[in-house]
């Protein structure tokens, strides 16, 4: 583990460590993150990426900021979220799905048992004897999808589907500079 505290910026400030993950999301928020384009170069002068699809680190270390895309639809989502909460000083719910369940939560008025039965057993065209997969490697689904703030304490919400690159950039700059993030009109969007 690389203790980030030892790494200083030229102006004496500490480099920050940032982790990101996508739970029950579509990676759209991560794509939007990448849309900050050349500003990524400015970002990596100030932060080190820890666990993230951008680094492919498998385990999370102690981080300053954790960005969580997606809501909770499976046991694994809950476990990853808890690891993030345990390792990040500041945890951010990024995007509609992390914030209110988003698209995946639109299954919440349906019975999960019926959904699984329909998909794996009753749909036309399935092989005879098709069953709901029961491999222990597969994370089990939750009865209902939940936003992440219902399971762990969330420090900030960055809304949008996805939040625009400008919103993400503005938000991160506020965080990095020690300001309470404030988006304002045009950047605060739920769609």
């Amino acid at each position: 583990m690389n203790p980030s505290a030892s790494l200083k910026l030229p102006d004496g400030r500490r480099r920050l460590r940032l982790a990101t993950t996508s739970l029950a999301g579509c990676f759209g928020c991560h794509m939007s993150f990448l849309d900050i384009d050349e500003r990524l170069l400015m970002l990596i002068e100030r932060v080190d990426f820890d666990r993230s699809p951008f680094t492919d680190f498998k385990k999370i270390g102690h981080c300053d900021i954790g960005l969580v895309e997606g809501g909770l639809c499976s046991v694994e989502n809950v476990q990853v979220l808890r690891e993030f909460r345990a390792h990040c000083r500041t945890l951010v719910a990024v995007g509609a799905c992390a914030i209110n369940g988003g698209l995946p939560a639109q299954r919440n008025h349906l019975d999960l048992g019926q959904i699984l039965a329909e998909v794996y057993r009753e749909r036309p065209g399935l092989a005879p004897g098709s069953a709901v997969p029961d491999d222990p490697e597969l994370p089990l689904l939750l009865n209902r999808v939940h936003p992440i703030h219902e399971v762990v304490q969330v420090d900030y919400f960055l809304p949008g589907c996805p939040p625009s690159a400008d919103a993400i950039w503005s938000f991160l700059n506020d965080l990095m500079d020690g300001r309470t993030p404030h988006l304002g009109h045009g950047l605060i969007r739920y769609d």
Partner: peptide
């Protein structure tokens, strides 16, 4: 309890 249906359906 949020995993109850999946447990029941998969028998896990």
């Amino acid at each position: 309890a949020e995993v109850s249906i999946a447990r029941q359906v998969t028998g896990r």
